[in-house]
Computed example of a mutant assay.
Amino acid sequence: MPIVKDSEKRKEVLKQLFSEEKIPDNLDAIVIGSGIGGLTVAAILSRAGKRVLVLEQRDQAGGCCHTFIRKGYEFDIGIHYVGGMSNSNPSVSKVLLDQISDGQIRWEELDKNYDTVHIRNSAGRKIFDILSTSDGFVESLTKCFPKEVKAIKK
């Protein structure tokens, strides 16, 4: 199955409005909610030859994983970081996502410091770096919170 990059063609599928006339006969399953869990279950059932209907209350499929475009830029509203998606050491989640998407989901390696949190209170301002590797993240947190090393490592 080829990757669909044309946003208008994606909208044809993702923004279909509900109508009783569109419901096919002989459904095997109805999945309520088109978030990552609902779409995963629907894809697996469909691959097993089942006839599946996915219902979503919002105007677009995807739950917290859907995207929108403003002024020519595409934004996502949900997941900010997902680990274990490298091809060299794939997690179970990556293997599952590759199976249900025919390998169409592409992952971009994040910069080492992919986010920074700034907190200002009466004691002043603190800056916390969020690092993309587990070891780096633990190291960064222990520098920021030296009294919490045991809890962080746990």
Rank of each mutant, 00 (worst) to 15 (best):
V4G: 06
E8I: 14
K11P: 05
E12R: 14
V13R: 06
V13E: 01
L14E: 06
L14F: 14
Q16D: 05
S19W: 04
E21V: 06
I23W: 13
I23V: 15
D25I: 05
V31L: 01
I32H: 00
G35T: 03
G38Q: 02
L39P: 03
A42H: 02
A48E: 15
G49C: 05
R51K: 15
V54H: 05
L55E: 00
Q60G: 00
A61N: 01
G62D: 03
C64Y: 13
T67N: 06
R70A: 11
K71F: 10
K71I: 00
Y73E: 12
E74M: 02
G78E: 03
I79G: 13
H80E: 07
Y81C: 14
Y81E: 07
M85D: 04
N87Q: 09
V92A: 12
V92G: 01
L96H: 00
L97G: 00
L97E: 04
G103T: 04
Q104C: 14
D111S: 11
D115P: 01
D115F: 08
D115G: 11
T116D: 01
I119Y: 11
R120Y: 10
A123F: 11
G124E: 07
I127M: 14
D129A: 07
D129R: 07
I130H: 10
I130R: 08
T133L: 10
T133W: 07
T133V: 15
S134N: 09
D135T: 14
F137P: 08
V138R: 03
S140I: 08
L141H: 01
T142W: 02
T142S: 12
T142D: 11
K143M: 11
C144G: 13
P146C: 09
P146W: 07
P146T: 04
V149C: 13
I152R: 01
